[in-house]
């Protein structure tokens, strides 16, 4: 992989391996008290940065206490790195304040856009993969890493449409971004699976084409099944269900290629009792342990 940007700020590609290679869970207010009461042995928690961009109150009260003895990943959903316009510097400032307060082991964001013309759409929207988008995304990531003084992980998206204006494969686009900016890859295996079904791609071949040496975290989540206008399967990245069996299989394949990785169970809707998510996090650790055993036997 060549480095096309001589001014890149963070060399080395892979993100710092600061989160433990264990199962983690997305932290939800519904579970705050349970976690404080029971102190479950979870590898790490992840929060959405924007939920904690408030002055005080219960969210900070609980996060401070939970973060005190568990590694933390802060995951942004609002930077609009794939956007047409310049980055929102006020939002970057808020992120810098939040990261200084909680000193998370990892910071990540999405290959997507969510704001345009001053409006925020609260969804991760797709962009065409071409030279123009590549230049903007790399400039945005350079700016984020410079402002925050740290390397970030970039998450591969779940998408429902493709663009006539795309000139590159998504995997080549991501490889180029990682090579140019030195950011790491947050490999979302559910997003990968959803996109591969939606665009009729071979998920394993797609996985092998990603810059796997740069993976610093893996996401797993549930999806919903629908059909497109021609009756072909169309999956929705809904985060409202247990991780699907096909995604577990693909995860085991990913782990065989990357080795153990911090692995997050994401659930944002129809949130179950905490032990249900803890069992899924444990399942990820079992997959990683099985891989380690196979490696040792080989």
């Amino acid at each position: 992989m060549t480095n096309a940007n001589p001014h890149r700020l963070f060399r080395g590609g892979a993100a710092p391996a600061a989160l433990p290679a264990r199962g983690g869970i997305g932290l939800k207010p519904e579970h705050y008290q349970y976690i404080l009461d029971t102190r479950p042995a979870i590898g790490f928690f992840e929060v959405h940065a924007e939920n904690y961009m408030v002055a005080g109150g219960p969210f900070h009260h609980y996060l401070e206490r939970i973060r005190a003895d568990t590694p933390l990943s802060i995951h942004g959903v609002g930077l609009s790195i794939g956007g047409d316009g310049p980055l929102d510097e006020a939002h970057l400032d808020r992120l810098a304040v939040l990261l200084a307060r909680y000193r998370p082991e990892s910071f990540s964001e999405h290959l997507a856009w969510s704001s345009h013309g001053g409006a925020f759409f609260n969804d991760l929207l797709p962009a065409p993969y071409n030279a123009g988008t590549l230049a903007r995304v790399c400039a945005h990531i350079d700016r984020v890493q410079e402002r925050l003084g740290r390397s970030m992980l970039l998450e591969n998206p779940a998408t429902y449409v493709e663009f006539e204006a795309s000139t590159m494969a998504e995997t080549d686009f991501i490889s180029e971004v990682v090579g140019r900016t030195g950011c790491g890859l947050l490999l979302d295996v559910n997003n990968l699976y959803v996109s591969c079904i939606n665009h009729h791609r071979d998920a394993r071949a797609y996985l092998r084409a990603l810059p796997l040496a740069a993976v610093g975290e893996i996401h797993l989540a549930g999806h919903a099944r629908e059909v497109d206008a021609a009756g072909a399967p169309m999956l929705i990245d809904s985060h409202d269900a247990p991780v699907a069996r096909e995604v577990w299989d693909l995860y085991a394949y990913a782990i065989s290629l990357t080795g153990p990785q911090p692995t997050l169970i994401e659930r944002d809707n129809d949130i179950p009792e905490f032990p249900v998510l803890a069992a899924e996090a444990r399942q990820a650790e079992i997959v990683m342990a099985r891989h380690a055993k196979l490696e040792a036997a080989a």
Partner: peptide
């Protein structure tokens, strides 16, 4: 405009 799908299905449903 400018959206496409692998099977030529109407992108409106996906959008």
């Amino acid at each position: 405009a400018g959206l496409k799908t692998w099977n030529g299905s109407d992108p409106a449903k996906r959008f």
